Amino acid sequence: MALNTPQITPTKKITVRAIGEELPRGDYQRCPQCDMLFSLPEINSHQSAYCPRCQAKIRDGRDWSLTRLAAMAFTMLLLMPFAWGEPLLHIWLLGIRIDANVMQGIWQMTKQGDAITGSMVFFCVIGAPLILVTSIAYLWFGNRLGMNLRPVLLMLERLKEWVMLDIYLVGIGVASIKVQDYAHIQAGVGLFSFVALVILTTVTLSHLNVEELWERFYPQRPATRRDEKLRVCLGCHFTGYPDQRGRCPRCHIPLRLRRRHSLQKCWAALLASIVLLLPANLLPISIIYLNGGRQEDTILSGIMSLASSNIAVAGIVFIASILVPFTKVIVMFTLLLSIHFKCQQGLRTRILLLRMVTWIGRWSMLDLFVISLTMSLINRDQILAFTMGPAAFYFGAAVILTILAVEWLDSRLLWDAHESGNARFDD
């Protein structure tokens, strides 16, 4: 018995066209964080690309023209004298008006014999932002004059995390709450300039795509075929072959399989920071003279006294001054041990922890910024005066060393310790 099946006739004509040209192939790229070699397709503007294995951002879609970056830099340069030299806060102490600005706080630190601690604050609040705007201006002028731009481009990517104007702005709020127990506070004209400078700096850093600047100024022929001998440069993120001198053909720094002496430098910085954190938390970090009496505060006791007036601000200072430094030390110690013992479990967790400490590390400088600003506000000789204690130097040095330890660690070593050939990683 035959089955009668109805015929289905399409209502619209289906047209099949042959592909007349070869589909576009992607360029081969190595991930600078996990060293995976993959094919990167062509990316349009405002599109980002991520590593298929570790999800690290390979290409950032946010990109401004150099002219727009230069305009932002010149605007920031105009704001800087007002943000640093004009009063941020006014207080009335014992019937006398006192003005506080950024430069005055750094000068008070240096004047009291601790120039190293003052230079830490100076670099993060004044030096690094000033280098940022002058570097962008150098790129703008240098591109037109045919100057060598490689050193500036190499420095810009590392400079971003040292620009800490946003953290200093939080420190202004913390210092205001600490001082309000002794005097009446009012915002100064410099505060508005400083807030504007923070906003412009944040926007500029978020749109400063150094890798795209490398592509514009020093374009290189990408690798179009897969080759395990391809290496990625950690300076400019170019994937290719080393030249005859073993250097990256684009930025001219040595092109090595792994960062040289990464573990040794990381261990040295980490152990030194552990040693410095002990006096930083045991010795007094601030000293207040009130009517001839002397009151010393460690980091913890200062947080407890701050909690009596504002528990939320005390929580912020606790996280930045105690929780973050010790968390960074514990995480980095764990990561280094996992590399030495070739741990194969929990790779995803370790990668996330490394990215976390990379982002939060700079916030530990908050305590030094609060001390710097408070020193310029309260300084009335023996009637009422505020000065920093010996722990300030140890704390600042420990924070900087932990930042350097994270920067010096080559994250690809975590993958080397893991089993080879993993296309995915999980716990």
Rank of each mutant, 00 (worst) to 15 (best):
M1C: 00
P6T: 04
T9M: 07
T11H: 10
T15Y: 06
A18I: 01
I19L: 09
E22R: 06
L23R: 08
R25S: 10
G26T: 07
Y28K: 09
Q29A: 06
R30L: 08
C31Y: 00
Q33I: 11
C34A: 00
M36E: 12
L37G: 07
F38Q: 05
F38V: 09
F38S: 04
P41T: 06
H46D: 07
Q47Y: 04
A49F: 06
P52G: 06
P52I: 06
A56M: 08
K57S: 05
D63K: 15
S65R: 05
L69S: 10
A70G: 12
A70N: 12
A73E: 13
A73G: 07
A73K: 09
M76T: 05
P81E: 07
A83K: 02
W84Y: 11
P87Q: 05
L89I: 05
L94T: 01
G95N: 05
I98L: 04
A100H: 01
A100N: 06
N101T: 05
Q104M: 09
Q108Y: 12
M109P: 02
K111F: 02
K111A: 09
K111C: 03
A115V: 07
G118V: 02
G118T: 03
G118E: 11
S119V: 02
F122K: 10
C124L: 05
C124F: 15
C124E: 03
I126P: 13
G127C: 08
A128P: 02
A128H: 01
P129Q: 08
L130K: 06
V133L: 14
V133F: 04
S135Q: 02
S135F: 03
A137P: 05
L139D: 01
F141H: 01
L145M: 13
N148W: 03
N148L: 03
P151H: 03
M155P: 04
L156T: 08
L156V: 11
L159V: 08
V163T: 09
M164C: 06
L165W: 05
D166T: 15
D166K: 15
I167K: 03
Y168L: 08
L169T: 06
I172S: 09
I172D: 01
I172H: 02
S176G: 07
V179E: 00
D181Y: 04
Y182L: 15
Y182A: 07
H184C: 02
I185H: 02
Q186A: 11
Q186W: 07
F192N: 05
F192Y: 10
V195Y: 05
V198E: 08
I199S: 14
T202Y: 15
S206A: 15
V210L: 15
E211Q: 13
W214A: 15
W214K: 02
E215T: 13
R216W: 11
P222M: 15
A223T: 13
A223K: 13
R226W: 14
D227E: 14
D227G: 13
E228A: 11
C233L: 00
H237T: 12
H237Y: 14
F238A: 10
P242K: 12
Q244A: 11
P249M: 14
P249Q: 10
C251I: 00
P254A: 05
P254V: 10
R258S: 08
R260V: 08
H261F: 11
H261S: 09
K265E: 09
K265F: 02
K265R: 05
C266M: 09
A268Q: 04
A269Q: 03
L271Q: 13
L271S: 10
I274Q: 14
I274A: 13
I274K: 14
L276K: 04
L276I: 11
A280P: 02
N281P: 02
L282R: 08
S286C: 06
Y289W: 13
G293C: 08
D297M: 08
I299D: 02
L300C: 09
G302H: 01
I303F: 11
M304N: 14
M304L: 08
S305M: 11
A307S: 13
S308H: 13
V313E: 00
V317Y: 02
V317H: 00
I319R: 02
A320W: 00
V324D: 01
P325F: 01
V329I: 10
I330C: 12
M332Y: 06
T334H: 14
T334M: 15
L336V: 12
L337F: 12
S338A: 14
I339M: 13
I339D: 04
H340V: 10
K342H: 13
Q344L: 12
Q344D: 15
Q345K: 15
L347T: 13
T349A: 11
I351R: 14
L354E: 08
V357A: 04
G361I: 01
S364Y: 00
D367T: 00
L368D: 01
T374C: 12
T374Y: 08
R380S: 01
I383C: 02
L384H: 01
A385K: 05
F393N: 06
F393M: 14
G396C: 03
A397Y: 04
V399R: 00
V399K: 00
A405Y: 06
V406E: 04
E407W: 12
L409W: 04
D410T: 00
D410P: 02
D410S: 00
R412S: 02
G421R: 04
R424N: 15
D427C: 10
